[in-house]
Amino acid sequence: MDAVLAQLFAVVTFQAGFNTTVVMLGAAALGCAAGAAGTFAMLRRRALVSDAVAHGTLPGIAAAFLLAALLGRAPREAGWLMGGAGIAALVSLLAIEWLGRRPRVGHDTATAAVLAAGFGLGLALMSVVQTLAIGRQAGLESLLFGSAAGMLPGEAQMMAGLALLVLVVIALLLKEFSAVAFDPDFAATVGLPVARLDALVALVCAVVVVAALPIAGFVLAVALVVIPPAAARFWSDRAGTVVAIAAAIGSVSAFAGAALSAVLKDTPTGPAIVLVAALLFTLSLVFGRARGLLRSAA
């Protein structure tokens, strides 16, 4: 036990080697971006879109794996799998936006349909992958369940870069995103391009989810977008503050989860991150200053 604690201390104080340090900083940056982006998805009541996009990456990952194997390339190169995931995420997003605008479908139905269809197609392709005897599928597994340990410094840097980009976009468009999330009709009469701003929020969330695949896995990546904003809402009644707190909670969750998974050898990173986030959510639910349970009881 003491050994584990000492190791955990070494990890969180960046004394566990260059690679681990880069991965943890990348995770923290990504958690930060995910919390901030997810806040607007939550406020616009479109958090589920991120889940559909995340599940929609599965066929992309599987197809990229098969294509790489077919071309005789090493499918474990993350570039292939991440590229497949990115393309599939974009296709899912476009499908949701296009279907959601049909008057007889509606946005929530479109989201659920794309989620189910993407996941179904992904499972079918994965079963094909498993029938082929293509060596170990380690690269694949890390995208499915998340692994900080298997990450390369280059991947961690890309993750941090995307996170930074997302944070800049949100900081610059805070007032527009808030106005659209609160009252899209009014925002349209004022002349804001509501559909484009909605699409940008969805795109930013999709970017975060895809960037989070290597560390959190495709099922749990969405948790980084959904849980921190929900937790942050208990602490403040101002949209800007909720964004900042969600970013902080996301950051701490991803950082601590990555650290735990680096120390506890058999713990995949995705579940570790989600468990930390869930713990912070529970604490917020009880102690949150704006609308936590203790506050409501008082």
Binding site: S178, F182, V190, R238
Partner: peptide, 17 residues
């Protein structure tokens, strides 16, 4: 929605700045 009365009134000026 996490907004104060002042936040909502400001949304009427969202395109001005």
């Amino acid at each position: 929605f996490p907004a104060t009365a002042l936040d909502v009134v400001l949304q009427g000026m969202v395109r001005e700045p």
